[in-house]
Nucleic acid binder design. Structure first.
Lengths: 210, 210
DNA sequence: TTAAAATAGATATAAATATATCTTAATTTA
DNA sequence: TAAATTAAGATATATTTATATCTATTTTAA
């Protein structure tokens, strides 16, 4: 039942998820003109265990110096390269409600190689306009607009009721990665990767733990 | 280093995170007037293992019938009660940019007991207005506005640069749970729960796995 | 120049989480 | 009515993930 695509890489998903935090710390260190940084320092800034940081960083291929740490520039490049954040990723936003709009404007994306090429919506008062510089097209034109453009990631922020239907349209168009912000469990072929961003599940954690 | 608050409950965080999906399926079953539903059916709808579904549901205290399944109404109540979604949670949104606005309007919240009582921002052209029916006050008035109101969850969607500073204000005000949508690692006392909603980490997974 | 300290890297262990197997109970059908 | 089937619940195992321990290396300072 495990999705193959998530297990292709020799790093665990939890490790991959921690790398951006490390990158934050490292970029800040670089801004402060630090030449080297130790796993111990990164760990204490993020309240993690040094062992975990070292093990996580190891997957990027970086080699540190005992008693010194890692070369900051080298480490930054190693993480960015491992995450493919040094390459461009073409993305589309499907559904330009408040959430879609927020994601179009999310600063962490552009800075890390995500290029939102355009957005789609079904509402006539959005079609033809721009949102934060991104052109909005009609959902009906999606297939046509993307016929000559290979999209790496489709960000799905449509209402749950139409999520499956829109997903099928995306699959027909050749999209292989969907970032699902709806509450729907999407049914997709095996070769399509769906990453669910589930606010309800986080809310559940908060509700139970408080 | 582990946060105490997350380990107080006798259910694992992954289990808690799956419960809302089960609830979705069960609510739909209830709408379709189903009287009973089996773990096997829930599992196949969500592409999970039946064993996992059964084990997860068990934490809610529900008892099913062999060869039949669970009583749908009973199961719905058990999950809602376990998640505390049958009680009201007072929340505030701090930072009313696109993301804050999106969260104010997120349908999954109100429906599950989250009551966003008001919002805060520092921008003068937002203060005094309403967003989707929620009043927006100045950040400077936060302490004063909340002095007689116990807030369960603060949703933090301010720019990263001011996240720590605003967090300290929230802590002074007595807030004990913060849902952090910024990229900052927040420094908080031990008795404050922070749940980070990290878009960058999800983007990392997509970038690596595609 | 040598000893001490800090840290990466390797190996080993523990903890958390998921899955498999077995047992029992309820239902259906022969 | 008895056998077959299905699914819950309990127990056991496997897998994944995190943490601990040990070793070797480099730097600093005595």
């Amino acid at each position: 039942m495990k999705n193959k695509k998530f297990s292709q890489i020799d790093a665990s998903v939890p490790t991959i998820r921690r790398l951006p935090s490390y990158l934050n710390v490292i970029r800040r260190a670089l801004n402060n003109n630090l030449k080297v940084i130790s796993g111990t320092v990164i760990a204490s800034e993020l309240e993690l265990e040094p062992i975990q940081v070292r093990k996580d960083l190891a997957v990027t291929g970086i080699v540190g110096k005992p008693r010194v740490g890692y070369d900051v520039k080298e480490l930054k490049n190693a993480i960015e390269s491992f995450l493919n954040w040094d390459k461009q990723h073409k993305a589309i936003v499907v559904g330009t409600g408040n959430l879609g709009t927020a994601l179009i404007g999310y600063p962490g994306f552009k800075q890390n190689g995500m290029n939102i090429v355009c957005a789609f919506d079904s509402s006539v008062d959005k079609i033809g306009k721009q949102i934060l510089g991104v052109e909005v097209y009609g959902l009906k034109d999606l297939k046509d607009k993307l016929k000559n453009e290979k999209i790496d990631i489709a960000i799905l922020t449509v209402p749950s009721e139409v999520a499956q239907q829109v997903t099928e349209l995306l699959i027909e168009t050749g999209v292989k990665s969907i970032w699902n912000f709806t509450n729907e469990k999407l049914k997709v072929p095996e070769d399509v990767l769906v990453l669910r961003e589930d606010l309800s599940s986080s809310y559940a954690v908060l509700s139970v733990c408080q």
